[in-house]
């Protein structure tokens, strides 16, 4: 539509607008290209969240400062989650008396009924709640399940573990963080 004779001033405005639109579009493409492969959050301050627990009450991460927090992200439809479910509970039983270690189960992309059945089936006793609106998943860049995030006593993400945990690995990681 700009083939018609345009006064010089509006031409300049047109050129600047065109350049800005193109720049914005390219910027978007560029940024997303170079951030697309960012992995799960593995360092820096742990994004805070409040989890509505399945058995009532709520739990806020930032109030757990001073504890080593193990955040396990899971779903009832996920086979590998089932493989590590008993391990997690066993290790939790070992640490829960100490007071400076906390396990939190974040139920991601699941239905409540199935999640409750899962918790019951595997006898999970540590606090568990649904990731409503999957905000926690978004904050931690969760890509699938299971994923386990280790938060140190200062509230920083120390590490993320992406596959099935065994008891030795889990214990070693917790002990390392406790020793710091």
């Amino acid at each position: 539509m700009n083939g018609m004779k345009a006064p010089r001033r509006s031409l300049l405005a047109l050129q600047i607008t065109a350049a800005l639109i193109v720049l914005a579009f390219l910027g978007l493409l560029g940024i997303s290209l170079f951030t697309q492969n960012r992995g799960q959050r593995h360092s820096g301050p742990a994004p805070d969240f409040t989890l509505q627990l399945f058995n009532g009450g709520a739990m806020t991460l930032s109030q757990q400062r001073g504890k080593v927090v193990v955040i396990n992200v899971w779903a009832s439809w996920c086979q590998p989650c089932k493989e590590e479910a008993r391990t997690l509970e066993e290790v939790w039983q070992r640490y829960k008396g100490r007071g400076d270690v906390l396990f939190i189960g974040v139920n991601w992309s699941d239905t409540e009924k199935q999640a409750r059945a899962y918790i019951k089936a595997y006898g999970i006793t540590y606090p568990n709640g649904p990731d409503l609106g999957r905000r926690i998943g978004a904050a931690y860049h969760v890509r699938g399940v299971p994923e386990t995030y280790f938060i140190d006593k200062n509230g920083n993400v120390a590490e993320v573990y992406i596959s099935v945990l065994n008891a030795n690995t889990l214990t070693r990681k917790i002990d390392n963080l406790l020793a710091k």
Partner: peptide, 14 residues
Amino acid sequence: TIWPMVSEMVLRDK
């Protein structure tokens, strides 16, 4: 078409 990308990047909404 590109909005899901923008949304996830800027607004954290998938």
